[in-house]
Amino acid sequence: MSVVGECLVAFVFGSVVGLLVQRSRFCNTAALRDAMLFKSYRNTKALLVAMMILSIGFPLFMTFGEGHPLRFDVGLNTVLGLFLFGVGMVLAGACTVSTWVKAGEGNVGAVWALIFTFIGMFLFSLVWSWNYWPPAPASMTGQPNLEALQLGFANAQTLQETFKIPAVVFGLVQAAVLYAIYRAIRRKEEAQQIKHDRIAASHRQPVAAE
């Protein structure tokens, strides 16, 4: 596909996603933060449903060698980087998606977060240019490289090649695990609801007695 075509497809995809996220108030940060702080799971459940669909879909395509999976080595930098990101997104109150969506709704704080995300990336580019870690994609080998704290590369396709089992089988297993988490959350919510109803009922009684 031509460069213009790719950019056009990406823009259309982004627009629909922006619209859906704006209308549903979905937030990835809230999906994690609210579950941890407030035991509220509205966004967490939505995130799990999307991941279940993708965990079956991506490996299904990859079984037949279709699609464009991400290709780069992972390692300690992946854990560290996402740790910093996790702290940052809760402090900023928005992740990468919601900064763009909230900026589109006229939220100046989100625009500010975006500006500083760019500045953070630029600062990192300076640090990287000094120590060259983590390794650049061009010098990645796909193999564990303990000196550079890299674990190499593995995904549904490499699993299929190694174990001679279709990639989609692994995907189905992951989807089942995600579904189990989803079920557990639903049960927890039902228990919360029963408790809530009981408290509400006990508060109503004195009013009725008056």
Binding site: T78, V87, L91, A92, C95, T96, I119
Partner: peptide, 20 residues
């Protein structure tokens, strides 16, 4: 928001991936 934005920017680049 300033600190959070900076941490997100540095984190994404260090990890090569974002939350999405």
């Amino acid at each position: 928001i300033t600190i959070g934005g900076l941490l997100m920017g540095v984190g994404i680049r260090l990890a090569f991936v974002c939350n999405v």
